[in-house]
Design a protein around this nucleic acid. Structure first.
Lengths: 150, 150
DNA sequence: CCTATATGGGAGTACATACACTGATGTCAA
DNA sequence: TTGACATCAGTGTATGTACTCCCATATAGG
């Protein structure tokens, strides 16, 4: 059998997923550009819209994103009036994030571009490979990769 | 058949790959942290080391990265003396990037952590799924997704 | 030779990402 | 009650990402 004895940095899972993320993000961003939203912003609006008002910590976990990163990412959305940031009801420390009317409208407008991107992606990459890849990516994002142990 | 009539933003390929990239990057970064390298920097050194001295444009294409992004990313590496930036021989506009001795040493030190990360990832996610995912990601990064046509 | 066009790279701007540290609040037990 | 500990979120710092505009240089046509 021609098994490789070793795997080198050319087989890096991290590099592979980052390269793919850059490539795909640029593609989707082109379709979202007319709406004035980035893919990250579109994703935040989509999540918040589907799940309803929630705190920064909760949304960050849903986004598989660091809490402080989400804190920064909501600033442009808040500035543009697409989401509203109110005080949490039970806990005064927390902040409730909510999609505004303007946010809803912007999201619906951006969805047109997103559908095009999604369809063209599937056409170019293949329906089966697209489904398989997305399933694997969802799985890896949900996998506890374990302790660092350095 | 129970086919879904529509796919909504919860099936976004872009969000999936970005979430996975964040999750995996944080994992690998923990193992690389003792060496003082980020995953991006480790990848740059690995590519440049394997392929030999090359220009910013060429390396950016190899990294599936925007030219200006790579320009920014090499600054910390240059500052720390891990890569050397010289003038191109044939074209005076171009810059030749090269891994220095210090860069080689740093890379070798970081490789210990990378191997641990790679092995633990494979153990947690499964060897077959890891191989499949990496193949799909390499394929998508190399796929011309086509014109924007907005 | 000289100009039109193409190409290599930098600067400005804006957003994305996350760690360490900090402050503010909540919770629970002594 | 009150003090120890946990939890929510902001700030400082550093890097990652890419677009637009810009300049320097190269190359091809005339």
């Amino acid at each position: 059998m021609a098994r490789r004895a070793h795997s080198g940095p050319e087989d890096c899972n991290c590099l592979a997923v980052r390269q793919a993320a850059r490539h795909v993000t640029q593609f989707y961003d082109q379709f979202l550009a007319p709406s004035g939203l980035r893919t990250t912003q579109f994703s935040i609006l989509a999540k918040l819209r589907r799940l309803g008002p929630m705190t920064i910590n909760a949304l960050a976990a849903e986004m598989v994103m660091d809490r402080t990163t989400l804190g920064r990412n909501i600033l442009p959305l808040e500035r543009d009036g697409l989401i509203a940031v109110g005080q949490g009801s039970r806990d005064r420390r927390s902040k409730e994030l909510q999609v505004t009317e303007a946010g809803e409208a912007r999201f619906r407008a951006a969805t047109k571009g997103w559908v095009q991107a999604q369809q063209q992606f599937e056409k170019a990459f293949g329906a089966k490979r697209t489904t398989d890849m997305r399933a694997l990516l969802h799985a890896v994002a949900a996998t506890d990769l374990g302790p660092t142990a350095v």
